[in-house]
């Protein structure tokens, strides 16, 4: 099976710090893959390299067989790689629907002249875009919130809206940076359900960063682990869970046993 996304020997250096260190990773089409690792491991940096926000110092990133290195962010999303952000970055003063419409920006064709003249084609396109926007909001569970200004949305809904905005560009690969961060259990459950539906109903390949182990273990088909910029493990959730290096990376060599015992009591 060929990989939809193939990360090869990607390295990103900030000053003296190697945030991502020669990482290799393949993501299969229509899979759900998780990226985990302690804080500062370089997970977000890897996402930034994939979406053109950072330019890696070395390595190659192939998406559907074509290199993403050196492309601008808007060219990358045009290829079909969309993302959400760890610290929510919506267009705050826009309504939910407007956010999703911006998400569709690059899929809209009408010229600016036709917008001034309001030609019937341009109007039809706008109507279709609104319709699709409503569908997407409905899909992520935000129906009825179309006209709410996005900063006024509850926190969990803002995360959902980020997903909807990303879907506006009709991506084939969706990168989710900690989609369930800060959510309560029921919100987390619906986010997990949403991730499944993204893959099953829309056929989108999902690559997500997540700290919540319950989510990671139950949702992912494969898991990759980063530590200090290096990939230290990769495999099915079960394999990764029992990997000695992973446990060490998370807990530190001595406290590993202690800490695990304490948590077990709670």
């Amino acid at each position: 099976m060929t990989a939809l996304l193939s990360i090869q020997q990607v390295t990103k250096v900030f000053g003296g710090l190697t945030a991502v260190d020669s990482v290799d990773l393949d993501i299969a089409e229509r899979s759900i893959t998780s990226l985990i690792g302690p804080n500062g491991a370089g997970k977000t940096t890897l996402f930034n390299c994939m979406t053109g926000l950072h330019r890696p110092e070395g390595g190659e990133i192939l998406f559907s067989g074509r290199s993403l290195i050196g492309l601008r962010p808007d060219e990358i999303i045009d290829r079909g790689v969309a993302r959400t952000y760890q610290n929510i970055r919506l267009f705050g003063r826009m309504t939910a629907l407007e956010n999703v419409l911006v998400g569709q920006h690059l899929r809209l064709q009408a010229s600016h002249w036709s917008a001034v003249l309001r030609t019937s084609r341009q109007q039809a396109e706008e109507r279709a875009a609104r319709e699709f926007g409503r569908e997407l909001l409905d899909f992520v569970g935000l129906s009825g919130r179309e006209e709410v200004v996005s900063t006024n949305l509850p926190y969990g809904d803002q995360r959902l809206l980020e997903v909807a905005r990303a879907l506006g560009s009709r991506p084939s690969l969706l990168l989710l940076d900690e989609p369930a961060a800060g959510m309560n259990p029921s919100e987390t459950d619906s986010m997990m359900d949403l991730v499944h539906r993204l893959r099953d109903e829309k056929g989108i390949t999902v690559f997500l960063i997540e700290h919540d182990m319950k989510v990671v273990m139950s949702i992912s088909e494969s898991v990759a682990v980063l530590d200090y910029g290096e990939k230290i493990a990769e495999g099915t959730p079960e394999e990764v869970r029992s990997n000695a290096r992973v446990i060490e990376a998370y807990l530190g060599p001595e406290v590993a046993v202690q800490e695990a015992a304490v948590k077990a009591v709670h």
Binding site: D212, Y250, L251, E259, K263, A264
Partner: peptide
């Protein structure tokens, strides 16, 4: 975040700490 406790349980099984 009530999820923390469940995390703890997952960890006890040897997965990792958040």
């Amino acid at each position: 975040d009530p999820g923390l406790r469940e995390n703890g349980e997952a960890l006890a099984k040897g997965a990792g700490v958040r």
